[in-house]
Every structure is written in structure tokens, then in C-alpha cells.
């Protein structure tokens, strides 16, 4: 295992804290496991990069990054962009379903109102 420097340790702890916050949200059923898996994977990757800085530096150098910080920023930005896109797809699906549900609900409500009005008329007749 690489030796964890002080700066990297703070980074790893930050990832761990975020992961714990997510676990808490999952346990309280505020977020779904299906929706959180990619975010947890992202935290795991960033956490591993902090725990194994030498390996990360080696990978960064192989990919042509001269500065480790540039590699970290690039990785984080790319991962967040993917997560955002995924969230956008989910949100759009939910939005479309909400529209259909709202329309169906309105049609059912109108039908119920008419049935209720018919029954009231029959009773009074």
C-alpha cells in the first residue's frame, strides 16, 4: 500500500464522510439504492485515489498528466458530468411519467364526478 500523505488523508476522509452521509440517506429511504450506485462508485474511485497516491500518480503520468491535481480535477469533472447526465435522464423520465399520471388522474376524477352526479340525480328523481 502507498504511504498516505496528510493532504491525501483529508481527501480520503472527505470521501468517507460523503459516503456515510449517503448511507444515512439510503437508510432513511430519502434516496434509492439504484439511483445512488453510480455516486457511491464515484466516491469509491476518488477515495481509492487518495489512499493509493503513488499508483494514482503513475496512472496520471501514463495518461500524460504532468500535474497530479490536473488529473484529479479532470477525473472529478468527467465523473460529475456523467452523473449529471444520468440524473437528467432519470429526471426527464420522471417528468414524462408525471405528465401522464396527472392527465390520467384528471380524467378519472372527471369520470368519478360524473358518476357521482348521475347517482345524486337518480336518488332525487
Amino acid at each position: 500500500m502507498d504511504q498516505i500523505g496528510e493532504n491525501y488523508l483529508v481527501f480520503a476522509i472527505a470521501c468517507l464522510v460523503l459516503a456515510l452521509v449517503m448511507m444515512r440517506l439510503l437508510l432513511r429511504e430519502r434516496i434509492t439504492l439504484q439511483g445512488s450506485m453510480s455516486y457511491l462508485a464515484f466516491l469509491a474511485v476518488i477515495g481509492l485515489m487518495a489512499v493509493f497516491p503513488k499508483t494514482t500518480t503513475m496512472v496520471a503520468n501514463r495518461l500524460g498528466f504532468t500535474l497530479m491535481s490536473n488529473f484529479l480535477f479532470c477525473t472529478a469533472i468527467a465523473a460529475l458530468a456523467i452523473l449529471h447526465l444520468r440524473a437528467l435522464v432519470t429526471l426527464s423520465k420522471v417528468q414524462l411519467r408525471t405528465v401522464v399520471l396527472t392527465q390520467e388522474l384528471a380524467m378519472l376524477q372527471e369520470k368519478l364526478d360524473r358518476v357521482a352526479a348521475d347517482q345524486t340525480q337518480r336518488r332525487s328523481a
Binding site: T98, V99, T102, Q103, A106, M107, E110, R114
Partner: peptide, 25 residues
């Protein structure tokens, strides 16, 4: 008139489609 009361604001497209769905159904 008959009234379809949408529980949220869907915008003009969602509102029109509600009526068209009713007509088709």
C-alpha cells in the same frame, strides 16, 4: 362544460394533450 382539473401546471401542451386523450378514448 366538462372539466378536467389537472393537479399541477403541465403547460399548454400537457393541457391540450389531456383533452385529445379524452377525445380519442
Amino acid at each position: 362544460a366538462r372539466v378536467l382539473r389537472l393537479c399541477g401546471n403541465l403547460g399548454i401542451g400537457g393541457a391540450v394533450q389531456s383533452g385529445l386523450r379524452l377525445a380519442e378514448r
